[in-house]
């Protein structure tokens, strides 16, 4: 009984070390990728296209809708307690600092996290990964690094677009319902926006990008031989990504408030 527990713990630790080693490899190869600009350059472009550009419509709609809702709710409620000026702080806190990074991360987990895990898993099953090794191509540098960089870059950029649509786009939509003077709105927004907000938002996106890509690729490679393992690893990838992103979000928010 104790031996079983001990074995489990050792297994767990080994698993974590393995994962840590994997992450290290990924980071190293990504760094080298940027420096060497090998064959994977086209792969990187395609990755950003699929992960970033194709998710833009979802992100835009989400950002717009959220922004509009916040503005309308805020502008109905806040002036009643004489705090109309708080709407800008609320917008910045909700869209820039909190929902921007985490919602775009969720969108990317759902779209690209699943796709990457599935793709890599099926490549393992069909021995394509082995074929890469046989030719001498390091699968981490050729497959994982561009995905890692592509997903992280896409997340960063999508976060920015989320802010564009959430802060700016929603303004134009609200004009149809409850007009606010342009200068007043943007001045209010710019006064509430601190560089720390922007930094926190970008750092979050970066961390989430690393998490999503690393977890998806790691789980994809864990397939061994049967294609029935593929959905299992995808589920694991999604679950782990969600959890790690939320934990990272909490940690970064804490750091932001302790500064």
């Amino acid at each position: 009984m104790v031996a079983l527990l001990g074995r489990r713990v050792i297994q767990r630790i080994r698993g974590l070390l393995y994962a840590a080693g994997f992450l290290y490899e990924v980071l190293r190869e990504s760094f080298l990728f940027v420096r060497h600009r090998q064959v994977g350059y086209r792969v990187l472009t395609m990755q950003i296209l699929f992960t970033g550009v194709e998710a833009l419509s979802v992100v835009a709609v989400l950002g717009l809708a959220l922004g509009v809702v916040i503005i309308i709710q805020g502008m109905s409620l806040l002036p009643q307690i004489g705090q109309g000026q708080l709407i800008y702080t609320i917008l910045i806190t909700v869209i820039t600092r909190e929902l921007g990074p985490i919602l775009t991360a969720f969108i990317i987990i759902a779209r690209s996290g699943t796709a990457i895990a599935t793709e890599l898993g099926s490549m393992v099953v069909s021995h394509e990964i082995e074929a890469y090794v046989a030719v001498g191509i390091n699968p981490i540098s050729y497959l994982v690094a561009p995905r890692f960089l592509g997903v992280t870059a896409s997340l960063l950029i999508l976060n920015l677009y989320f802010n564009v649509f959430g802060l700016v786009g929603s303004y134009f939509v609200v004009q149809l319902i409850k007009p606010v003077p342009f200068a007043e709105y943007f001045r209010g927004l710019l006064s509430s926006l601190q560089t720390a907000d922007i930094l926190s938002s970008l750092v979050k996106s970066l961390v989430f990008g690393v998490i999503v890509s690393a977890v998806s690729t790691f789980n994809g490679f864990r397939v061994e031989s049967a294609s029935t393992e593929i959905p299992q690893v995808v589920i694991k990838a999604v679950g782990q990504s969600f959890m790690l992103c939320i934990v990272a979000d909490a940690v970064i928010t804490l750091i932001y408030y302790m500064r």
């Binding site: 069909s126 021995h127 394509e128 082995e130 074929a131 890469y132 046989a134």
Partner: peptide, 9 residues
Amino acid sequence: FVFQDSALW
């Protein structure tokens, strides 16, 4: 290396 199932990309 030539794989049994070709293993083409």
